[in-house]
């Protein structure tokens, strides 16, 4: 398989700085960060939004992708662990591969942890955006491949757990192969007389 190389096309990066209400903008000067982003190499559009994750916020990303023909998107807002899926879908909806999105974690990793140093936080935010843009330059489209799943299962071991799993899956309609080393299923459970807490028979 060939190695995926950077596209030869010109890079067109859009940067979206989120205020997150006052969560980010209360500490970081978002306008200054956007202005800084605008000046970075390969960045063709940089803007701010009160809530980038909101419907209008996402719409703005989609519009900009179309209007500026963006091929990389940098969203500087909260943790990717929070909203990466949201923005990936937004990109995908307008035909941009979701893996061409990069997130910069301005909220959890900057504004919330440097609340008493707004100037330094703003400088850090600029540099974080620069890091995001640097990474975005090398982002490549990725394809999530699907593999078929055979509708059959093998259960290894025929004790109480194997028996229960086999019955559940067979009753759900799947073909089950239950493999047991001994001549009979039952396992240790079958050797036990009564069982707690109900004091009934094991078999």
């Amino acid at each position: 398989m060939a190695i995926e190389r950077s596209e030869s096309d010109e890079l067109r990066i859009g940067v979206f700085i989120c205020y997150c209400g006052l969560n980010i903008s209360g500490t970081v000067d978002c306008e200054a960060v956007a202005e800084y982003a605008q000046g970075l190499k390969d960045v063709v559009a940089a803007s701010t939004n009160r809530y980038t994750c909101s419907e209008p916020g996402q719409q703005e990303i989609k519009n900009d992708i179309k209007e500026h023909n963006l091929n990389r998107v940098v969203v500087a807002s909260c943790s990717p662990r929070m909203h990466e899926p949201t923005f990936r879908v937004a990109c995908q909806e307008v035909g941009l591969n979701p893996y061409l999105l990069e997130m910069v974690n301005l909220r959890e990793h900057c504004s919330w942890v440097h609340m008493h140093e707004p100037e330094k936080a703003t400088e850090k935010a600029k540099e974080m955006v620069k890091m995001g843009v640097a990474r975005a330059r090398f982002l490549q489209p990725q394809i999530e491949k699907e593999v078929p799943v055979d509708r059959s299962t093998m259960v290894i071991g025929g004790g109480i757990a194997g028996i229960q799993a086999s019955l559940d899956l067979a009753n759900a309609g799947y073909q089950v192969y239950l493999v047991e080393k001994k001549p009979s299923i039952g396992g240790v459970m079958a050797q036990i007389d009564k069982t707690f807490p109900t004091m009934d028979c094991s078999i």
């Binding site: 290894i156 086999s166 080393k181 001549p183």
Partner: peptide, 15 residues
């Protein structure tokens, strides 16, 4: 388990 039409029981068997 023994009589279930969708369970093939393989005793004395090892993966």
């Amino acid at each position: 388990v023994g009589r279930h039409p969708r369970i093939e029981l393989m005793t004395l068997s090892e993966v």
